[in-house]
């Protein structure tokens, strides 16, 4: 839902980042307002996943230039845990397994960290169980997964549901979902997409990072951005995704080649 007067949640300005000595992001610009759903598309290696990790504060990435403002504050100053507590959420493409750490306890500690930041009282184990059982419905997840170690032995689909469950508990203001659709069968994709749609509201913004149209058939984005070589090459409405689906990424390569030939120009904005 696009409302020009909606509050600004996230503003990314000319963001450059590298991993080790390899520059990956080369000037990303992106603005998210409350109520909006954005999709970032692009080939492997275009920098989509890096963007999500830089926003969440992964220590392997170094920001070399640019700024990220989250609700008026400098996001890049904050530790990953502080970013999470103030409402930034990253749904991982490959959620890691953490043997020995109970999923239920993990969810409770994470939820309480977010609640403390919002000035809400901590939930004890009983109160939390009530909450988690209610939120499980969002992703139609079997409560048995609460008793297991975090993601340990979960199938690809179960891991992704667990991610959306975390999102449902943490109630983020900006949710970045990194290829949440990858590795999911049709049913799991539908459940995950329904969960995300349910959680998207007028007060928060969602950034979907994806390769494929199929997720966007289920969640209609307000904006589609095409990323290539560490920049956003084009921005459009949902029809841009459909165009990509039809024509593939070849034109992106062409546009990129032109761009590089004509030096360091700003990316073309197509409204």
């Amino acid at each position: 839902m696009i409302r020009p007067d909606a509050p600004l949640l996230l503003e990314i300005r000319d963001l450059h980042a590298r991993v080790e000595d390899q520059p990956i992001l080369k000037g990303v610009n992106l603005t998210l307002r409350a109520g909006e759903i954005h999709a970032v598309m692009g080939r492997n290696g275009s920098g989509k996943s890096t963007l999500s990790k830089v926003l969440a504060g992964h220590p392997a990435y170094t920001v070399t230039a640019g700024s990220v403002t989250y609700r008026g504050a400098d996001l890049l100053e904050l530790d990953p845990e502080q970013r999470a507590r103030i409402g930034l959420f990253l749904g991982f493409q490959y959620p890691v397994e953490i043997p020995g750490v109970s999923n239920l306890e993990f969810l409770r500690v994470a939820t309480n960290a977010r609640r403390a930041e919002r000035g809400e009282e901590e939930l004890d184990t009983f109160a939390f169980e009530d909450l988690v059982r209610e939120r499980l419905k969002v992703v139609q997840m079997d409560p048995a997964f609460l008793e297991r170690s975090v993601n340990e032995g979960f199938s690809g689909g179960e891991k992704k549901r667990n991610e959306i469950l975390q999102m449902a508990l943490l109630e983020p203001l900006v949710a970045i979902l990194d290829e949440t659709d990858s590795g999911l069968d049709i049913d799991a994709l539908r459940i995950v997409a329904e969960g995300v749609s349910q959680l998207a509201g007028p007060d928060n913004a969602t950034l979907l990072i994806t390769h494929y149209q199929r997720l966007l058939d289920l969640i209609t984005p307000d904006y589609v951005h095409v990323m290539a070589a560490g920049r956003i090459l084009r921005t459009g409405g949902k029809e841009l995704a459909l165009e990509l689906e039809r024509t593939g990424y070849d034109w992106v390569d062409q546009e990129l080649a032109n761009l590089e030939a004509t030096s360091e120009r700003e990316p073309v904005e197509v409204a």
């Binding site: 990953p80 999470a84 959620p95 953490i98 750490v101 994470a110 960290a113 977010r114």
Partner: peptide
């Protein structure tokens, strides 16, 4: 480092 980052990205201190 990825396990730690995962927990941190859920608001859990290092």
């Amino acid at each position: 480092a990825d396990q730690l980052f995962y927990l941190q990205s859920r608001g859990i201190g290092f």
